[in-house]
Write a protein that binds this DNA or RNA. Structure first.
Lengths: 164, 164
DNA sequence: ATAAATTACTTGCAATTTACAAGTAATTTA
DNA sequence: TAAATTACTTGTAAATTGCAAGTAATTTAT
């Protein structure tokens, strides 16, 4: 179910183009979930801690698929479920996510342990390599744990589905 | 005119915290303008190519100031003007911006010349050092040129001001 | 000295996007 | 065969964005 995205670009600047694609409060969290936590399903993303709404999640998954950041594939053995997976283009955002992680851990109060951050700064290349390896081999074990408990625990949705 | 920001956090995850601060379509463009183009004034940001509206720009400048990403200082010699400048926290986003630039140049059509991108990938540390040096010394010469002409040229506002 | 520009905004309003709650449908499990 | 589970859709209200226009304190030009 791929749809072409008629994404409007505000300018040719690469930073601007990036933000045209994922410059919002949710897209990078979904990408984070896939990249470092090994999440794959709608249900996984829904319960990842920040409390995204079901309609927003569905919308972002479709948009990110449309711009080639991820793919959706039916799960063999369970006709209800879909596995979302980053494309090569999507996994290539790993350095951005890592630097974002390091920046916030240094300049804001976060749940990331200092020891872990220090380790990530020192082993930047190794961590990126491992991230890429996990993606290639479809290894779903978490690279980074789901830190603390969510500060904002909310989730309760139920039903509705599109026709297969 | 500093105001405390009562920013709501969706979780303790550093990536999430980052997006709580600048996860929108405009904030990082303002930061880019200050970081690599040497822009300092409201007028500069307004004409930086993507066509931000005056109210949005004013809002983002205040929010970014409130979270300590930038400072606003009156310009000696011209009582009308204000110079905005990144804080240490703000300039520390340089690696993220650089990664974003490289990612988009590789995976999207952008106005950034391939030769320039290749050079930036090879000299990552040098470019970051130069970015930091420019900030420290308040050197306003552009690090990176304002690439092509904007694809979306629109600007026309006029008046209104707050009391000093 | 006065008029015209310039700089940095504010205000109002319509359009778009987000968030919340609830419901639906195709499976799969009990 | 009934109850769960998975992945959504559909309303609707609230919040945010975008557009156009206006305001005010300077500074520059005449």
């Amino acid at each position: 179910m791929e749809k072409k995205s008629n994404l409007k670009r505000r300018s040719g600047c690469p930073v601007s183009v990036s933000l045209d694609i994922f410059g919002d409060r949710w897209s990078l969290l979904i990408i984070r979930d896939m990249m470092v936590r090994g999440y794959r399903t709608f249900h996984d993303f829904l319960h990842s801690g920040e409390g995204i709404a079901t309609n927003i999640l569905a919308d972002r998954l479709h948009k990110l698929e449309a711009v080639g950041m991820l793919t959706a594939e039916p799960v063999a053995g369970d006709g209800r479920s879909t596995h979302y997976r980053l494309t090569a283009k999507g996994i290539a955002l790993a350095p951005v996510l890592l630097d974002l992680l390091i920046w916030a851990a240094h300049h804001e109060d976060t749940a990331a342990p200092c020891s872990l951050i220090a380790q990530m700064e020192q082993n930047r290349e190794a961590i990126l390599a491992e991230t890429y390896r996990r993606w290639e081999q479809r290894d779903p074990t978490p690279l980074i744990p789901h830190f603390t408990a969510p500060l904002n625990p909310k989730v309760k949705p139920r039903k509705g589905r599109k026709k297969p």
